[in-house]
Design a protein around this nucleic acid. Sequence first.
DNA 1: CATTAGTTGGTTTTACTCAACCAACCATAT
DNA 2: ATATGGTTGGTTGAGTAAAACCAACTAATG
Lengths: 159, 159
Amino acid sequence: MDDAPGREDRPGQREAADRVAAALATVGNWMFAPATRRRIMASSGLEMSLGDYTLLAQVSLHGPVRLSVLAGLMEVDKSTLSPPAKRLESRGFIERHPDPADARAQLVSVTREGRLAIRELWKARADAVAALLSGWESSDVEHLAEGLGAFAEAIKKNS
Amino acid sequence: MDDAPGREDRPGQREAADRVAAALATVGNWMFAPATRRRIMASSGLEMSLGDYTLLAQVSLHGPVRLSVLAGLMEVDKSTLSPPAKRLESRGFIERHPDPADARAQLVSVTREGRLAIRELWKARADAVAALLSGWESSDVEHLAEGLGAFAEAIKKNS
DNA sequence: CATTAGTTGGTTTTACTCAACCAACCATAT
DNA sequence: ATATGGTTGGTTGAGTAAAACCAACTAATG
């Protein structure tokens, strides 16, 4: 798996990949810094822990879905998702319906409120990103959007 | 500050910025997922909490520096850094020396061990990134490296 | 009856905060 | 010159909340 041919034919590839990794470290560090999170939450008028937001996003992404399936996707124990799910439900952001296929199971999905909350949070984050890009050439932003989009696709495919 | 001219002249800019933000969300989510962290830690042979690693990286980045200065940079209370600093010191990854300019203060810096640990962790992370980029055209990787690098620069400048 | 979906209880670690404290610094007023 | 008072660097302690785990439970499947 690691000795695929053609790997050592492109030393520049690895060098560039290293630079990508380095930049990603900075970016991730910024995005997940408590300070940034506080700003995002404040400017969106919401207050939500990181875990709650992650779960909300996953529920919104994977439509009506069982919690155990999400736990599998996220590679955490099912019990980890119980508290955040409860919090999100009590705030009206998600709702549960019985799974017609299995009376033990429930399908969670996002409510209208939840969609609204996601949109607010998403906008706040996008604003922060846009602010950092404000001085850029349009073509550079476009290239970054394309490259990063492809990278995100690769992540989704590999998970 | 928000009504700078030329902003509404480029609707495409904002649209592309939104795509950048969306991709960044996916990427950040991946980087900070417990599963990814577990894999990175396992493949580097180290075990370290996220906070400890963040502090270690900051110390390595900002050379001999006071903890209170780092706390300021990271926008957390000084007391937040005491426990991680103690852990890192007890594992031999950082060391403290008296600040010649002020007998109250100490300057923390990375030890050789610490540098080694950083390199291991960094390599593990870079490997994960490189794996995702393995099928790419070299020029695409190069472009991504450039764009992300510039974005990381923007973050550093704005903080 | 064994398995599965989900919750609950108990435990651990982390990541924060704030308030209190000590020691050292710094300025100023005697 | 020295004593005083206010500020700063760092740790400690108390407290909260998040994030994870595991084991045990229930209710429903098959």
